[in-house]
Amino acid sequence: MLASFKPNKQLVAIKKVSKKINESNYENIRKEARILKMARSCPFVCHPYAAFQSEVEAFFVLEYASGGSLYSMICKEGKLPVERIKFYTAEIVIGLQFLHSNGIVHRDLKPDNILVDKDGHIKICDFGISAEGLFGRKMISGLAGTPGYRAPEVLLLNEYNAGADWWSFGVIMYEIATGEQPFSPSGCALREYFLIKTPEYPSYMSKEMQDLLSKLLEKNKKKRLGVKGKIREHPLYATIKWNELEEKRMKPPFQPEMKSADDFNEISPEVPVDTSRRERVEELSYVDPTWHWQE
């Protein structure tokens, strides 16, 4: 939901998650709260302002990304200009490397979960099914993520780590460069299809981007770029000044429109009617002390 605080009318996004009975989603809610609070030190991961809960739902107050998602951009524009692709994907690289250095594997990286803020910078969001504590050679197993973005090792139910995110990153780059996914997410022989099919690269795609994508969409997880090699040194990013990018001193190639709270109609969200009593989610409620929402 989009919301604002009176009287300053600052726009914020509110994510709500149902506190389900007889389902162990409480730990997922606590996990997302932990990751969001930790991620405040990275400029390219969605930042939380506060979290609270009602009897039946948990709420996260997040920064509002007025540029929408990469998915909405693909739907509106098809493939994106090359300079925007390089800028966005370079910021995603920084965000992913930050998460991975803290033992976090996103596990559901896709265009819907990559937002663009009012200044034109990337924000990775939605950590509900992320995995924590994956340091060094530690692995996890189990099917997770969205069809079309799952790495081969995830589809085959093998063990995996951060390499699964780099595969998803490669799919996203291909999609914003072409307007299409490199692999079809449907079909009864999906696992075999992924293992034998090689992506087709259009003639207009630069050799540098084709080379990078071939290294990201490497089916052998041990050879995949991101896990092996230094992705920041790839020729596609030759013009990227990483220090300036990390400090948000590089000018974004596109700045979205930022509406004010007065541009939106005010509505009252529906309040769920549920007489079943839920337990309180511990370690959830907080307010970022640096958020001056009353000013």
Rank of each mutant, 00 (worst) to 15 (best):
M1E: 10
M1A: 12
F5A: 03
K6P: 02
K6N: 12
P7F: 08
N8Q: 11
I14L: 14
K15L: 01
K15S: 04
K19P: 01
I21C: 05
N25A: 06
E27K: 10
R30M: 10
E32F: 01
R34I: 04
L36Q: 01
M38W: 00
P43Q: 05
A51F: 06
A51Q: 09
Q53R: 00
V61G: 10
S66D: 06
S69T: 11
K76I: 08
L80I: 06
P81D: 12
V82N: 15
R84H: 14
I85R: 09
Y88I: 12
V93Y: 04
L96F: 01
L99K: 03
H100V: 07
H100G: 07
H100N: 09
S101N: 14
L109P: 03
L109F: 06
P111I: 03
N113Q: 11
K123C: 04
K123A: 05
G133S: 10
G133Y: 13
G133N: 14
G133A: 08
R137D: 14
R137H: 07
K138T: 13
M139G: 03
I140F: 15
G145N: 11
P147Q: 11
L155V: 04
L155K: 00
N161E: 13
A162R: 10
A162L: 04
D165E: 10
F169N: 02
E175W: 01
E175R: 05
I176A: 07
I176R: 04
I176Q: 05
G179P: 02
E180H: 14
Q181R: 15
Q181D: 03
Q181F: 05
P182G: 05
S186R: 09
S186M: 05
G187L: 00
L195I: 01
I196P: 00
E200M: 02
E200F: 08
M205K: 06
S206T: 13
K215T: 08
K223H: 15
K223Q: 15
K223G: 12
L225H: 06
G226F: 03
V227T: 11
R232G: 13
L236C: 14
Y237R: 06
A238L: 10
L245D: 01
R249T: 12
P252L: 09
P256V: 08
E257A: 13
D263C: 06
P269W: 09
E270H: 12
D274L: 11
D274G: 07
T275H: 13
R277G: 11
R278Y: 10
E283K: 12
L284G: 05
S285Q: 03
D288G: 04
Q294K: 14
Q294L: 13
